[in-house]
Simulated assay, not measured.
Amino acid sequence: MTFSLVARCPDTGMFGIAISSSSPAVAARCAYTRAGVGAVASQNVTDPTLGPLTLDLMQGGMSAEAAVARVASEAKFVEYRQVMAVDKTGATAIHSGPNSLGIWTQAQAENVASAGNLLDNEGVPQAIVDAYLSATGHIGDRLIAAMRAGLAAGGEAGPVHSAGLQIADKVAWPVADLRCDWTEDCPIEAIATAWEVYKPQLDAYVQRALDPRAAPSYGVPGDD
């Protein structure tokens, strides 16, 4: 019921994930990033504990491949799970259990990996990877381009209703965490619109957290 990608920007070291599904609030259960460590998607009959676990293993020194292999060997019911990761070197890894739903497949390259289930066709993850690699600009722009390409390639077998985009960079919290938890319209376009609004303000929100004295004006009455 889901297609997604995890990615690293080799120029900035930022990590990101974008995801969409016919299920509600998919990003709340499936999207995980950690600055300086990596990005993980845990999807398909989702176990939300697998994302933080995989990040903990990578933070402890494991590569994406080793961390995903450890999770796949030790977690319960891994035959139902899809887990994919990218680490701080840009290495990627994917586990897709044989009980993944419907048409399921995956694709990966340096700095990006994609997987999906209940897909319209087997080419969707490769279209996502190709689009990410060919896109330019901020990692958020590239994530949106990749998800649009996945949807254009067929996406899910049915309509999608939720989506999310999360980005990690230097600080302990996601610098962007945008979600559309349910819509009858296109949730990927909803996230794209939110990103267009949020992108110019991203650095200001980080600065406000680190030192509000040096932050830009809030633009509210009485704020000089």
Rank of each mutant, 00 (worst) to 15 (best):
V124G: 06
Q166I: 14
G137S: 03
H138Y: 06
P221Y: 09
G150L: 11
A35G: 04
Y32E: 03
L118D: 01
T33Q: 04
M58C: 09
T54H: 02
E110T: 10
D224M: 13
Y132L: 10
V68A: 02
G155K: 06
A135Q: 00
A149L: 08
A41Y: 00
A115Q: 11
A28Y: 12
A7F: 10
M1L: 10
D224K: 15
Y32W: 05
L5G: 11
P10D: 15
V83Q: 00
A93P: 14
Q108Y: 03
A131N: 04
S20V: 15
G222R: 13
S217F: 07
E79C: 09
V86A: 01
G36R: 06
I19F: 12
D141Q: 09
C186S: 12
G97E: 00
A109H: 12
V40G: 07
N44H: 05
Q201A: 06
D223S: 14
L165N: 10
D181N: 15
G222T: 08
M84H: 14
M147S: 11
V206H: 05
G154P: 05
A66K: 09
A135T: 02
G164F: 08
P52D: 01
V26M: 07
L5I: 11
R213D: 15
Y218R: 06
K170G: 02
D203K: 13
I144Q: 01
Q126I: 03
T89K: 10
A72H: 03
D224R: 15
L50M: 11
S20D: 04
V37G: 05
T183A: 13
W104V: 00
V40C: 13
S22A: 05
P187Y: 00
W173M: 12
N117K: 14
T92P: 09
C186R: 12
F3I: 13
M14N: 04
G102N: 08
S96Y: 00
K76R: 13
S217I: 10
